[in-house]
Design a protein around this nucleic acid. Sequence first.
DNA 1: CGCTCGTGTATCTGGCAGATATATGCTCAA
DNA 2: TTGAGCATATATCTGCCAGATACACGAGCG
Lengths: 179, 179
Amino acid sequence: MTRPARTRYAVLGMLTHGPMTGYRLREEIRGTVGHFWRESFGQLYPTLSQLEQEGLVRRGGDAGRSDPWEITAAGRQSLRVWLATEAESPSPERNELLLQIFFGRHADPGVLRGHLARHRERLEEARAHYAGLEGLVAAEDSPDRTYWLITVRHGLALVGAGLRWNADATALLDEEDPV
Amino acid sequence: MTRPARTRYAVLGMLTHGPMTGYRLREEIRGTVGHFWRESFGQLYPTLSQLEQEGLVRRGGDAGRSDPWEITAAGRQSLRVWLATEAESPSPERNELLLQIFFGRHADPGVLRGHLARHRERLEEARAHYAGLEGLVAAEDSPDRTYWLITVRHGLALVGAGLRWNADATALLDEEDPV
DNA sequence: CGCTCGTGTATCTGGCAGATATATGCTCAA
DNA sequence: TTGAGCATATATCTGCCAGATACACGAGCG
């Protein structure tokens, strides 16, 4: 078989927040689950059409350009079923930086240290971003608050681990090839 | 544009370890960089053909079934160039478990805690795996040793962070919905 | 009036995963 | 000894998905 299509569940889930156009759906996804999920228009629009055919979403009925999609009762049911199924253990994601390090012996001197330094900068930006997000979510008064907080904490945990690893890796490289 | 093709660099890099058939290439990839990189045959064979056309790899010349591929001088040069280019900051990886948690309010009670428990088991297996790997690599006497060790440490760092997050998340869920 | 920018829809290309089909030679056990 | 399994090996197909691009429309602003 092929990869299970999961775009549909992101769509159905976001539509529980209210009716939205395809464009707004994507913006919402970027703004909320964007740090661990992404969607592209090229995937979104065909998925919406298919969900409509299956009766999981429908349009308000205002024919026209910006007629928002809403989730149906069948859609909510489908979402609940998916929530109860175990997420496939994700096959390892491709990490290009690690691949470069693995073959690092063939790199010119200093190249890897440069990659690590830039990687660290990105992580520090991400950490600041998550810290701000954590404050926002913690201040929310929403039944979703705890769930959202858990996803933000995940980002913080990974970024922290990444920073510690980055320092460790830099130290190991310095040992290998002293400056 | 489209996503940059990175399969080629995994191939070129692995071929620095010596000539290999397509099949063995994939096995080597699984056994060494498998925890942060994956390749499928469906991608590997076309890539090898293309690399051959570009003169970055060649076959030994033993016409026949298991004629191994080897990297050419141009291939090594291409690898070095790639090593010096900054890896694209990876766009966020899709994390289905986090998506389920984000929409967790719509799940039946206990469902998320079950997902987290299974997730924790998988992480603990992974941690044991990495710990063994770390011992093996540390005992290696190879010029690649430090580089390989850094990639293993990355796995350990992420798994550790994952386990701490998992405990944190479970506690937050228990607060939300006491057992 | 023309410009930019946000909103909105649609489509194409190409990377890639996973499945499947097929073939060969080896080893081990009935 | 035969035959069942298994590792080795190559090839191809389907379908998910990202990223790019192209096109509209309207609002604000100069």
